[in-house]
Computed example of a mutant assay.
Amino acid sequence: MAHRTAARPAPAGRPPADFPAEVLPHLGMPALIALTADDAAGRTCIWGGRALPLAAAVDLGEHLLDGVLAFPQSCGPCIVRRATDALAVHSPDCPTCRDRERWTECTVGYGLLSAQRQGLRVGRGGCR
C-alpha cells in the first residue's frame, strides 16, 4: 500500500478483542493506508514488523478503509511499551484515573491497562 496521510477511519464492526476501541488513538496506531499487506492481514506486528504466530498476537480489531478490511495486530512487547507510554501521558491529567476509588471507570485508562496485560499474556519475543 502507498504511504500517505489519511484521516483515521472508525473501526468497522469489530473492536479489539481485549480492550475498548477508544484506546487505539492513544497507542499511536499507524494510519491504515500506511500498513503493508502483511500488517493489514495481521501477519506481522504493525509497529515492529515481526512475523506473528496467532498465539503471540494482540488483536487490534477489524478496520475498514476504502471498502477493504484490515486486521492489524501487535506483538506483546510492542503493545506493552505503547500502552505504558500512553498511560504515563493520560493518567496524570485524568481525574478519574487519579481517583483510587473510581480508576476502573475510565475507559481509556483501564483500557490501556487491559492492553498492557494482554501484551504480557501473549509472551515476550518482540520485534526489537
Rank of each mutant, 00 (worst) to 15 (best):
G49R: 04
E22L: 13
W47C: 02
A7M: 14
D59Y: 06
V80T: 14
C97A: 12
C78P: 04
G67T: 02
A56W: 02
I33A: 12
L54I: 13
C45W: 06
L27C: 04
C94E: 06
D18F: 13
F19D: 05
S74N: 02
G111P: 03
T44P: 01
G125F: 03
H26T: 02
P25Q: 08
R81N: 08
V122M: 03
R102S: 13
G13V: 07
A55C: 08
P53R: 15
T5E: 14
V68G: 00
A21F: 02
D39V: 00
H26D: 08
R100Q: 12
D38C: 01
R100L: 14
Q116V: 12
I46M: 11
A41F: 03
A31W: 01
H90N: 07
H3Y: 12
P11T: 03
G49Q: 04
Q73D: 02
I79Y: 02
F19R: 07
G111E: 08
W103S: 13
P72R: 05
L87F: 00
A88K: 12
A2H: 09
L87T: 01
A12N: 12
G76E: 04
P25H: 09
A12T: 10
M1G: 13
D99V: 03
A115W: 03
G123C: 08
V23G: 11
C75I: 08
C106W: 11
A57E: 06
D99L: 01
R117H: 14
D99M: 01
A21Q: 11
A7P: 09
P92T: 09
A51K: 06
L112Y: 06
H90S: 08
I79H: 01
A70D: 11
R121F: 10
H26P: 01
D18S: 15
W103F: 15
A55Q: 15
C127R: 02
G76D: 06
L60Q: 06
G67Q: 02
H90G: 03
H26A: 14
L120D: 02
L64P: 00
P72V: 08
R14Q: 14
D99W: 01
P9Y: 10
G125D: 13
T36I: 05
P16H: 07
G28S: 04
Q116P: 00
L60R: 04
E22M: 07
P30F: 07
R124F: 09
P53S: 14
P20M: 09
E101P: 00
A51E: 13
C94D: 15
A37P: 00
G125E: 12
H90Y: 14
G76F: 07
A88C: 01
P16K: 05
P53A: 15
G48D: 04
W103G: 00
A88M: 08
G123E: 05
G61K: 03
Q73E: 07
F19I: 04
V122F: 04
S114A: 15
Q118W: 14
G48A: 08
A21Y: 01
A83T: 04
A55W: 09
G49D: 04
C127S: 11
S114F: 00
C127I: 02
A40W: 08
R4P: 00
A88S: 09
D38G: 00
P95D: 06
A17N: 07
A56Y: 05
P53V: 14
V122D: 05
G126R: 08
P30W: 07
D93R: 12
A31F: 05
A57W: 05
I46N: 01
A6W: 06
